[in-house]
């Protein structure tokens, strides 16, 4: 039965144009990330040309201020952007699941306390907070991941909590309790399987947010200077005045477009996953 269910999800996902489009975008980016060493004409850290070269047959997108190939930087940057997005989303979903399940299952004071915390995290304007946090703990790959996770676990926690609340009232959960099954088994055998599909769609949406946040932070110069993501490329472009010259066409526009496309890919996949898991949103076809 489990198998059948996943097959049905897959069908809904692929019969939905938006979902299919999102999924294809994600596949393309995944391929680029994996194949970056083969696709990139140069090592992105090597100074291969004269600084500020305009696009030509050798450097398709020109070179930056120190003579590195921008195209190669972008291709390798896919890895960083994707990785940070996915890892940060994963951690925030893990955190969200933990908080959501504890809060929903135990209820009472624990629930009230955790949900106030969630409210707090949700209402704090996140950009200033993140800038503060990132500046405080310093720029590095894992610090960026940490900062993103810390502010994006709250909304998944809410969604998962509400799912746990409905699962909790199921007869089989009560039956398991009356049999004497201990709580950890009830949670892992009966609650968790009902939470995982929701967590999956939340994960995809969180990944799209994380990528955007990472780009913003890096653009503000709070990213890791040693692992160049698309956001970091934009930061250097801005710092070297590319926004004011013709260079914006090959130095600013491409990373911007890539960020947008990847975010859209995740968002579309996420929305149609949500549609699958919440049949009320499913349109008649």
């Amino acid at each position: 039965m489990g198998n059948q269910k996943w097959k049905k999800y897959w069908q809904v996902l692929t019969s939905n144009n938006i979902g299919l489009f999102g999924l294809i975008l994600l596949m393309i980016f995944l391929l680029i990330a994996i194949l970056a060493p083969f696709l990139a004409p140069f090592d992105p850290t090597d100074r291969v040309g004269a600084p500020f070269t305009k696009p030509n047959s050798q450097f398709l997108l020109g070179t930056n201020d120190v003579g590195q190939d921008i195209l190669s930087e972008l291709l390798y940057g896919t890895r960083i952007s994707l990785l940070i997005g996915v890892i940060a989303a994963f951690i925030s979903i893990l955190l969200g699941c933990l908080v959501g399940i504890v809060s929903g299952y135990y209820g009472g004071k624990v629930d009230a306390l955790l949900m106030r915390l969630v409210d707090l995290v949700l209402v704090i304007p996140f950009l200033p907070l993140m800038i503060l946090l990132a500046a405080f703990i310093g720029p590095s790959f894992w610090n960026i991941v940490l900062v993103i996770s810390l502010i994006s676990w709250a909304s998944p926690a809410r969604v998962i909590r509400s799912q746990v609340l409905t699962l909790k009232t199921k007869g089989y959960v009560e039956a398991a309790k009356s049999i004497g099954t201990n709580i950890s088994v009830v949670l892992s055998r009966h609650i968790l399987p009902g939470v995982i599909p929701i967590a999956l769609s939340q994960f995809v949406l969180a990944a799209s947010h994380s990528i955007l946040i990472e780009a913003s932070l890096s653009f503000l110069g709070l990213g890791d200077p040693f692992t160049k993501s698309w956001g970091t490329i934009l930061y250097y472009a801005q710092a070297r005045g590319a926004f004011l010259t013709d260079a914006w066409i090959w130095w600013v526009l491409p990373p911007g477009l890539l960020i947008t496309t990847l975010v859209i890919g995740f968002a579309f996949t996420g929305y149609s996953l949500e549609e699958i898991l919440n049949p009320r949103l499913r349109k008649e076809r």
Partner: peptide
């Protein structure tokens, strides 16, 4: 306890074997 609604008290994602193993495992 035997519950009222047999459509609700058996976890739809578990096989009968696993459902009946649960009390023994507990």
């Amino acid at each position: 306890m035997i519950f009222q609604d047999p459509y609700d008290t058996l976890n739809p994602g578990m096989r009968i074997l696993d459902i009946l193993m649960e009390p023994i495992n507990a």
